[in-house]
Design a protein around this nucleic acid. Structure first.
Lengths: 204, 204, 204, 204
DNA sequence: GCCTAATCGAGACGGTACGTCCAGTCTTTGG
DNA sequence: CCAAAGACTGGACGTACCGTCTCGATTAGGC
């Protein structure tokens, strides 16, 4: 007889009886409102009203509004999970990174950045969830592609691929979150040029 | 009856009569509270009570709590504005970037990141102010140092220095804001190695 | 095509299939909860949980929680319906009124007073039901006894017996509902003395 | 150095700074709403909205909606505090009791009965306050008048005047709260006739 | 003695009001 | 006139119940 793995903090609701209609309406409302106004103006009451749903129904299934956004993005944002492999590393990276750069300009990723990452600064649980469900899967896919390239002799043997992934994508997040300059396709070219070839003058 | 020269939208306060004691107490209280708890738990009422100050005194001089933090950091955080020039570019960058990496771990920069940058996602004014008063001055100093190196033939001629600054510092912000891994001194070495020398295998 | 004889506003439940177990459990739970806490803290959800019953089962058979109490009291509280006739009017009244006075102190009558009468102030249906099922039967019995006494020449011919019943029992309700003094057996003696003999000095 | 007499449960508000405008608006709104609908439909939120007041302002000064009604009635309902003394006891009682009987039909006393007395069944504090601020002052005035009559030989020496007050007024409350028959002026005559002269046949 | 339909326990649903907390404004008092 | 104090309107918070609705799982009556 196995002990239940979930401790059921407060008479856990039964997911089988969950209303899919309400769930979708809540995710839709959250994304819409986050697109229309800024994340700080996003309220549980607003989501409930827009979704035509009781507040309790939200609190029954999600611990916070950030958790709603997380689920919404995880469910609807699977498009940036593709990673091509044409044999040409630089071209493949350009394809994928351009896709990310364009996503950063879409309303849904506005919700992502303005909402989740901001909330993550004040809530370690959100931070953990963002890393695990959003960041890591994409990082892993990128690292696999890089690993093939390293095996093929296209990349130096002595570099850590996780560090290289960081170097490639960090500048996109930098502009997104610090609002210095807009994220563009040109930026991707620049990053690839610098990261692959290095900034130093060839010693020859 | 003379019209006052300043239109005074609503009885503009006179800075000459401002109480420096109250101003310092408010900045102190804001930083202390931001260090003790998360930014989301930082309230105007809490700052006023901690500072022994009326709420009106805060609203008279600052438009938001983020503005308070901004002023606090601008006033107390001038240390990371130094930029060395020993003639060795990589060493100088390592010195400065290590300094930044260590600042990211200090309580005051917790306030900076968790507070200001999060708030900037929901408030364009804050975003603008952060870039102008915090980011740009440091970027400019870095770019000047890089410019000397470029003139000295240490860096490729064809690269944009603003892009290089981004490439160097973005990974630090990436870890800070996305909470993937802690920011360490080792990270600085890795960034410099990759960014200066490139990840690609030497074509010989 | 025959119209059903009962219009069945919304699928009227069939009393033949009613679960007597559930009915008793609900009445018990309602009385217990009303005894343990104040009427204001009595909830449909609490009754359902205590009775181990679905909420719908309650709503199917009763329109309100006051209706539950009413049925509970009507079913279990038939004891105060006895009215003695020993030939001595004052003694018989003392017997019956003392019984009522003691009932007012019992937990079940706490439910009666604190629950039903309070609810009756906000719900005319409850008020009507209380009068018809609880008050009137007892008033009628008392009036019959008084009528015999009037015929026997023990009471004045010119008085309305309904008014006299009121005069006798009203002071018990007065203390019960206004919480001025506790209802005691002594009060019964005092009432009988005053109501039968009058407060005025004999003119003699 | 004196210890403050009030323990100040939670940073007690300063009554000197209280807004009389808000206070009157709240009392008005409570009485109006209680007159329009039944007490059970009276909500703090409704009062706040009608009064144009924040909910906090209500909770700052009153512990419950019953407390609001109590203050409203105490402040506006001083009219039934008069007690005549013409030398004719029965006439004076008739005057006063008729006044009370008529008050029981007015909207404000609907609030009184349907609200306060119902609430008193579930809240001992309310019950205590009702007795002390509403009931007792009026009972005392009546008892004084009866006392004069007793000294003047109009009433029997052996009766407790508090009991007589109860006997006189209880039937009015009986009809009011139990909703058996409406309270009328005729009822007052009946009560006086019975209570003063007694129901028993003169033994002569 | 099945079969079928209603009732049952259970609880998720859209709502309303609760009582609290904080935002941002207004008012009072004192320096 | 500024500062402190804090009461004010307003609105979102997260909770508790309301009364309705929707699920299987009994469970009883009519066949």
């Amino acid at each position: 007889m196995a002990t239940p793995s979930t401790p059921a903090p407060r008479s856990a609701p039964n997911p089988d009886r969950r209303s899919e209609r309400a769930r979708q309406a809540i995710l839709d409302a959250a994304l819409e409102l986050c697109g229309e106004q800024l994340y700080a103006g996003l309220t549980m009451e607003g989501i409930a009203k827009r979704a035509g749903v009781g507040k309790q129904t939200i609190y029954r299934w999600w611990p916070s509004k950030a958790a709603i956004l997380l689920e919404a993005i995880e469910e609807r944002g699977r498009s940036t999970l593709d990673f091509p492999d044409t044999g040409n590393l630089e071209a493949d990276l350009r394809t994928q990174m351009t896709q990310v750069a364009q996503a950063f300009a879409s309303p849904m990723f506005a919700a992502y950045s303005k909402g989740l990452i901001a909330a993550a600064q004040s809530d370690p649980d959100i931070a953990k969830a963002v890393v695990e469900t959003i960041i890591n899967p994409r990082v892993d896919l990128c690292r696999e592609r890089l690993s093939k390239a390293q095996s093929a002799g296209e990349l130096r043997e002595d570099i850590d691929l996780a560090d290289l992934v960081e170097l490639l994508y960090a500048p996109l997040y930098y502009r997104l979150l610090l609002h210095t300059r807009p994220v563009t396709n040109d930026q991707v070219d620049t990053i690839l040029n610098l990261a692959l070839n290095g900034a130093a003058q060839d010693k020859k």
